[in-house]
């Protein structure tokens, strides 16, 4: 027996005796729910109303585990003589959590805050195929999403606050002080909406009429797949145009024009104005979203106004 053994043995006894008197490290998980750190990545929750089926998340997803189906819907003009608009209606939004690697890129990339991290983690299944969760399940998790963490003291104002603080454009005489945005917006938007038909440059109107003819009239669920095949000449080149028209700001602007009170994203007056301008200029921005889906029915559903004809 060497010399160092006895002190070592005593040290061992002391260590175990010490930890006997201390608190255990055991997490009594099923009985006591764990105290998760903020921004825990438990599951991805979906605010369905915010989703414009822009497909950014599905495309950025490294393992392609997001499935989105959507169709277009015609919205009647808000003013007499106005132009009918289109918007995307989300039919299906599913995330396959057996593939998801919880990288959070979809949440980062979502321009409309439709996806959020929820700390909820108890959604294990006995069959791996049951981990494909549709939008109702993803939406139910929204209730568990914590409020965003407070800004650091002394940090810059968030973008939307600075935008709201900006003085309105000179033309808009009404209100104009900061924070009046909510009250002012409807009038301002309507003002913007009217010039669009007045402009009557030929391309937008033709676009609009064309889109009314082929895209499905308003019933949300069914017929986009039915009508699409009849009018699908499968153009070769539209991809470049699609991506060109994508900028997000335009699309946020499309909603206020339509006047859907619950849906309107929190874009403030100034942005909305700008966006509405652009929307008027392009005229067709909302129609271009490709509804790529991974189903077998997907290719037929690819309606695409510009490339056609």
């Amino acid at each position: 027996m060497g010399d160092g053994i006895l002190p070592g043995l005593v040290k061992g006894l002391a260590t175990t005796a010490k930890s006997l008197t201390r608190h255990t490290h055991t997490a009594e998980y099923p009985d006591v729910s764990p105290a998760l750190p903020p921004r825990s990545r438990g599951v991805i929750a979906l605010t369905e109303e915010n989703c414009t089926s822009c497909m950014l998340c599905a495309r950025e997803c490294p393992d392609w585990c997001i499935y989105i189906d959507s169709h277009k819907e015609e919205l009647p003009p808000t003013t007499p003589g106005g132009r009918a608009r289109q918007r995307n209606v989300l039919d299906r939004f599913a995330i396959d959590f057996s593939l998801c690697m919880y990288c959070g890129i979809c949440i980062e990339v979502c321009p409309f805050d439709a996806l959020h991290w929820s700390p909820e983690f108890e959604y294990a299944e006995l069959d791996i195929r049951d981990l494909l969760h549709e939008k109702d399940r993803l939406g139910a998790w929204m209730a568990t999403v914590p409020a965003p963490p407070a800004l650091d003291p002394g940090s810059a104002d968030p973008a939307e606050v600075t935008a709201a603080a900006k003085p309105p454009r000179a033309a808009g005489a009404a209100g104009g002080t900061r924070g009046a945005g909510a009250a002012v917006r409807p009038t301002r938007v309507r003002k913007e909406a009217t010039p669009a038909p007045a402009g009557t440059t030929t391309p937008p109107t033709t676009d609009a009429t064309r889109s009314t003819t082929d895209s499905t009239p308003s019933t949300a669920t069914a017929p986009s797949t039915e009508t699409a095949p009849t009018a699908t000449p499968r153009p070769a080149t539209p991809a470049a145009e699609q991506t060109r028209v994508m900028p997000a700001v335009e699309r946020t602007a499309a909603f206020p024009v339509v006047e859907q009170p619950p849906v309107t994203p929190p874009a403030d007056g100034a942005e909305a104005e700008q966006a509405a301008d652009q929307a008027a200029a392009h005229g067709d921005s909302t129609q271009v979203l490709p509804t790529v889906s991974t189903d077998s029915a997907a290719p037929t559903e690819r309606t695409d106004e510009e490339g056609r004809e």
Partner: peptide
Amino acid sequence: KVMAHMQGRLGPM
């Protein structure tokens, strides 16, 4: 129990 607590665990519960 003693072994569990000496190892920072709870043992059978």
